[in-house]
């Protein structure tokens, strides 16, 4: 009987689900993905987590609660650091401590598959192979990782083309037939927040409904590396992606306004968004709005803010 491995539809799944799915499927596991984030997921997470944690991590715990009794093993990646150019780039403290946090919050958990992605110790491939070493079925782990990383490459290309990582979960891209004319609003935020409509309350749709086109940019590895070489780089890997995306949008994106989406108490976001905000307003003179999301955010309030921002851009353009 094939064993089931649970993967939470949260946080890094929005980056790496293609890799994980292929890797475990190749090893002969049944991959069980948790359901899309709903009211219930968030409420569960909020109840379990300390109140000060950011919304995506709370939701992650909600996903664990939903999936943990349906699977034989649970994937809990520990994203520590990776090398770009000549320097080390880290995950945020919450990403590094995610397995510790999960173990502290839940009393009973299935077997935990914990790849420790620490480039200072091992390559990613070794980390994944190590993580499944004690789980049996390790024969072919090398080949499985090779296929998985090829799948991840294809998936990244598709993410860039479609402007959304949701294809990994089997959704088709948002309607690309929208007219290109009119207002363009650049959007910068972590994919696990922006594209999880249970958390972001469909902020991208709200931009569309207000009559503007959301413009997103997913940087290539080369663009991230260029950003990493700058004197002003922050040594957080996922923030580097946001900085590279914002730079591209501001410099060549022909955008009328910039929307920064972050969760309340996102520690890295406090720094990144401040840098992007300063550069957008002082250097590029692009109107910028910052939306902070948490479990108390009301949909009507969010709608009003986006609508009035787009109205403002329209007035300004005239």
């Amino acid at each position: 009987m094939p064993r089931r491995i649970g993967i939470c539809r949260a946080l890094h799944a929005y980056h790496h689900y293609a890799l994980w799915h292929t890797f475990f499927a190749e090893l002969g596991w049944d991959v069980v993905l948790s359901s899309p984030t709903g009211r219930n997921t968030v409420e569960q997470g909020v109840r379990l987590a300390p109140s000060e944690l950011c919304l995506p991590v709370k939701a992650f715990l909600g996903h664990v609660a939903e999936i943990k009794d349906r699977v034989d093993a649970l994937l809990l990646p520990r994203v520590v650091c990776t090398r770009i150019a000549r320097d080390w780039f880290f995950g945020c403290p919450k990403a590094i401590a995610l397995p510790d946090l999960t173990r502290a919050v839940f009393d009973a958990l299935p077997v935990i598959v914990e790849p420790i992605l620490d480039g200072q110790l091992k390559t990613d491939e070794e980390s994944y192979r190590n993580a499944v070493k004690n789980m049996g079925s390790t024969a072919g782990a090398r080949r499985a990782y090779k296929r998985a990383s090829a799948a991840a490459g294809r998936s990244a290309l598709r993410t860039r083309r479609e402007g959304s990582p949701l294809h990994m979960f089997g959704y088709t891209a948002a309607d690309p037939t929208l007219p290109d004319a009119g207002l363009r609003v650049g959007v910068v935020g972590h994919p696990y927040l922006l594209f999880d409509s249970g958390l972001s309350l469909g902020v991208l749709d709200k931009v569309r409904q207000s009559g503007a086109r959301p413009v997103l940019f997913f940087p290539t590895a080369a663009e991230v590396e260029r950003e990493a070489r700058l004197e002003t780089a922050l040594n957080w890997y996922y923030e580097l992606e946001l900085l590279a995306a914002a730079r591209r949008l501001l410099e060549t994106g022909k955008i009328d306004g910039l929307l920064l989406v972050a969760s309340f108490a996102c520690g890295t976001g406090a720094v990144t968004n401040e840098l992007i905000h300063r550069s957008a307003v002082h250097t590029h003179h692009i109107p910028t709005i910052q939306v902070l999301l948490d479990e108390h955010t009301g949909e009507a309030g969010l709608h009003t803010r986006i609508e009035s921002f787009v109205d403002l851009l329209r007035l300004r353009k005239r």
Binding site: E52, L53, V57, C92, P93, A97, A104, G267
Partner: peptide, 16 residues
């Protein structure tokens, strides 16, 4: 400090 990333995430572990 409120919102301290390591300080917040370590809390459940400290309690346990």
């Amino acid at each position: 400090p409120f919102g301290c990333m390591p300080g917040t995430v370590v809390q459940p572990t400290m309690a346990k």
